[in-house]
């Protein structure tokens, strides 16, 4: 008795070994819009990023080209291994330098040994270099802030992913004693793919114990990601001017609306270089 080709194909499909099947591309970039995503770069991959935020001053009497204010960030990220990425960056707003690392703890799996979530750990240390008043004479130690995040994401469908990001921030110095130096926050982010190379993103950060000496608002963004070959372009409408975690999570001084001074346009250009290539 012979099998027909269809049965033979079924016989072949029964022979698949148990290879872990991980979810790929939960998010496109290592940032969803403004905050970190669970995604890491693979081993030997260098990512160069130019992040920009533009906004206008309220009631400005000046004639600026494009926008009154610009904050720019230059950063790199490099994959030490498939699970560990290190990075560093410099941001013009308050002249913040920062170093960071992200470790992939768990990856969502869809084979028999299902894992429902992807989890990455993120740690950032930032140094505020701004020497203008009243920062002129504070010491090195007082210019530091540390952000720790547990990034937890689930890819619901090939198009739709969500992330929750419990966050702890320690600031080493406050000008005002009423301000706490340890903060708890939680970020919510999502992505929806509208085409093969285009997706919509949104993010919001809630701070449980914000600064008391002045009003701050939760950082919010809606944006579009567009990826083409080795370039990822991210556009956002946001209220966050800083691009360093402790900066935009804790010290966003304005709410999200379209008024001058509050509305911030963001543009990230991220270029990927494969310094180490896989052997075929």
């Amino acid at each position: 008795m012979s099998l027909n080709a269809q049965d033979l194909l079924e016989a072949v499909d029964k022979e698949y070994p148990n290879i872990p099947q991980y979810e790929l591309s939960t998010f496109k970039g290592t940032r969803i819009a403004i905050g970190q995503s669970i995604e890491n770069r693979k081993k030997g991959v260098l990512q160069l990023a130019a992040l920009n935020r533009y906004w206008n001053l309220p009631n400005a009497k000046i004639q600026s080209f494009v926008a009154d204010k610009l904050s720019a960030r230059l950063a790199f990220e490099y994959g030490i291994s498939d699970n560990l990425t290190i990075g560093a960056g410099w941001t013009s707003l308050e002249e913040v330098s920062d170093v960071n690392l992200k470790y992939t703890l768990l990856r969502q799996r869809k084979d028999a040994k299902k894992a429902p979530l992807s989890i990455s750990l993120f740690q950032n240390a930032s140094y505020r270099g701004d020497r203008s008043e009243p920062n002129s004479d504070i010491g090195f130690k007082n210019r530091l802030a540390f952000t720790s995040q547990v990034l937890i994401a689930h890819k619901f469908t090939p198009k739709f992913s969500l992330q929750v990001s419990p966050t702890f921030i320690h600031r080493s110095f406050s000008f005002n004693e009423v301000d706490p130096s340890n903060h708890f926050a939680v970020g919510f982010g999502g992505r929806y793919r509208i085409a093969n190379h285009v997706s919509l993103t949104s993010e919001y950060y809630y701070v449980a114990n914000p600064l008391k000496s002045r009003d701050t608002y939760g950082a919010f963004a809606i944006g579009v990601n567009w990826d083409v070959r080795f370039l990822l372009l991210q556009f956002q409408m946001t209220n966050a001017r800083s691009m360093v975690e402790d900066g935009f999570i804790l010290q966003t001084p304005n709410n999200f609306n379209t008024d001058d001074g509050n509305f911030v346009f963001g543009f990230n250009a991220i270029f990927t270089l494969h310094l180490i290539q896989k052997q075929l």
């Binding site: 591309s25 770069r41 081993k43 990826d227 494969h274």
Partner: peptide
């Protein structure tokens, strides 16, 4: 008779980003 079956995400590329794009945007594995 002959039958062949393969997983598209088992293709290995020299560049990891190509692997990602192949699976996410082109083949939609």
């Amino acid at each position: 008779e002959i039958a062949i079956s393969m997983l598209m995400n088992a293709f290995v590329f020299k560049k990891s980003l190509m692997y990602e794009h192949f699976n996410a945007s082109y083949i939609e594995s």
